[in-house]
Design a protein around this nucleic acid. Structure first.
Length: 460
RNA sequence: UCCCCAGUAGCUCAGUCGGUAGAGCAAGUGGCUGUUAACCACUGGGUCCGCGGUUCGAGUCCGUGCUGGGGAGCCA
């Protein structure tokens, strides 16, 4: 007999004479003549309540079932006599697949996030983490659907890369050389003897690849793992995270901002409509203002604010910031917080940043001082999207690279796209984990990724 | 990398003025019960993060290291 998912059984429109469920015991309570067993199989947040009568064979074993044990239950799906649930199973057979010993770390109580991080291999068995990772899965699907519905193609940009100048941070080194090979006879590490014959790293961005494909397929996106070897110790940073990077041909900065805003709204809306039960958990236990916040983002226009005007607003704020605000410096966390959480109280898209603080590929504006960059800042999260219109003019791009001391020879393939059929195009990157943080109200990135990688932490 | 805070039972924590350690939950045993974070009683459970120092005496004070958390920088 095929097992039924608990999610389906709890939605059943009618009783069923015989069903089979397999899952893990969340809790068990004895009553006179029978035992209540709550089973969870991960298909949804809710457990299903099983009634095991004392007349069942091996009832003494059933009474020893502990939290975390695995069981197969067959029986009848009937209307519950008790309050609190519509359906329950009157068991005709309880098969113990495996018994969890008393050392099972997860108890029938709330655990701290810090403790659960130390048992990241077991935490998906809890209500909260089960919910996060169901939502994460659903949002992944929604991302593909969003782009597919709009005629975008999904590009698999390389994970291993030789371009060290994607401009987005320190790279992890990829090598097949053994540590002992690196210093033969006291000589330094020799990349020309390595697997690829040159220094190689893990990708920090799929953007440059995506640009090449946008200039062929029109509208494309990447969605994959991204690696940053920065020694960042904050609740918003991980060394390995997932990023979504759409890239659109014949698209200017304004249309790029439209896409970013539409995209964020779509994903929030999708989570609310397709993960309502899991979302309620976060609204109830993690962030009581979550639903109001998400509703606000859905219904209010994002503020669009040139960098220069942001500087003016901050200068006129009448408060002293730890870091002074002036044109030519990047805005600090405290400034972003002021704009999104105090001044506007909604997401803000900042654009037209000073050229001096942005990478080579961003399109230089007519004022020659700013570039067509845009960052979407969300209240409580900070930067969730960073993007730009790309510099499509070969001469200006080359001049920028020279200005920044880059070796053009390393980018001949990239410059070819500006030599042959160059067109205005734009794109952005969105941190998937930061999106999940915004949607669930979870405040630490380590709690929205299955096995987080951060400086000094590679367990699991 | 810098600044701040914390580390006591399996988990969450309390521990006063420096005088050899406590609660709730969990676990075990028994009782009660269509229960649902079940309830009641009893029982077991400690390298007070490590190392060094001050002191007659350190969970408590000092130094140092480790681990965790928060903030900053960097960024998505």
């Amino acid at each position: 007999m095929k097992r039924s998912k608990i999610r389906m059984l709890l939605q059943s429109p009618h009783p069923q004479d015989l069903v089979l469920v397999k899952g893990w015991v969340r809790t068990r309570r004895d009553s006179k003549g029978f035992s209540f067993i709550e089973i969870n199989d991960g298909s949804c947040l809710k457990n299903i309540q099983v009634i095991a009568q004392s007349s069942l064979p091996h009832y003494d074993d059933i009474q020893k079932l502990t939290t975390g044990s695995a069981v197969a239950i067959s029986g009848a799906l009937v209307a519950s006599q008790g309050k609190g649930q519509l359906w329950e199973i009157q068991a005709s057979d309880v098969t113990i697949i495996s018994l969890a010993p008393e050392s099972y770390p997860l108890q029938k109580k709330r655990h701290s996030d810090e403790f659960l991080r130390t048992i990241a291999h077991l935490r998906p068995r809890t209500n909260k983490y089960g919910a996060v990772f169901r939502i994460r899965s659903e949002l992944s699907y929604a991302i593909h659907r969003f782009f597919r519905d709009r005629g975008f193609y999904y590009i698999h940009s390389p994970i291993i890369t030789g371009s060290d100048c994607e401009g987005a941070g320190e790279m992890f080194r990829v090598t097949t050389l053994n540590p002992g090979d690196r210093l033969p006879d006291g000589h330094a590490f020799d990349a020309s003897r390595d697997f690829f014959g040159r220094e190689t790293g893990l990708t920090v961005s799929g953007q440059l690849s995506a640009e090449m494909f946008a200039l062929a397929l029109g509208d494309v996106y990447t969605f994959g793992p991204t690696f940053r070897a920065e020694n960042s110790n904050t609740r918003r940073h991980a060394a390995e995270f997932w990023m979504i990077e759409p890239e659109m041909a014949f698209c200017n900065l304004s249309e790029n901002m439209d896409m970013g805003e539409t995209f964020i709204r779509y994903l929030i809306d999708h989570a609310l409509h397709n993960c309502s039960e899991d979302m309620e958990l976060f609204a109830k236990f993690v962030d009581p203002s979550l639903m109001a916040t998400l509703d606000h983002i859905l219904t209010s226009e994002f503020v669009r604010l040139p960098y220069r005007e942001a500087v003016d607003i901050l200068s006129a704020a009448g408060r002293s910031f730890e870091y002074p605000v002036r044109f030519g410096t990047d805005l600090q966390s405290e400034h972003e917080k002021y704009l999104t959480e105090i001044h506007f109280k909604r997401p803000v898209i900042l654009y037209d940043y000073p050229k001096s603080i942005k990478p080579f590929y961003m399109r230089v504006n007519d004022d020659r001082q700013t570039v067509a960059a845009m960052d979407i800042l969300a209240p409580g999260i900070g930067e969730i999207v960073g993007g730009s219109q790309r510099e499509e003019r070969l001469d200006i791009l080359e001049a920028r690279m020279d200005e920044l001391g880059m070796n053009r020879a390393d980018y001949e393939w990239y410059l070819d796209s500006r030599r042959y059929g160059s067109v205005p195009h734009s794109g952005f990157g969105m941190g998937f984990e930061r999106l999940i943080m915004m949607i669930t109200g979870i405040t630490n990135i380590r709690d929205v990724i299955p096995f987080p990688r951060t400086p000094g932490n590679i367990e699991f």
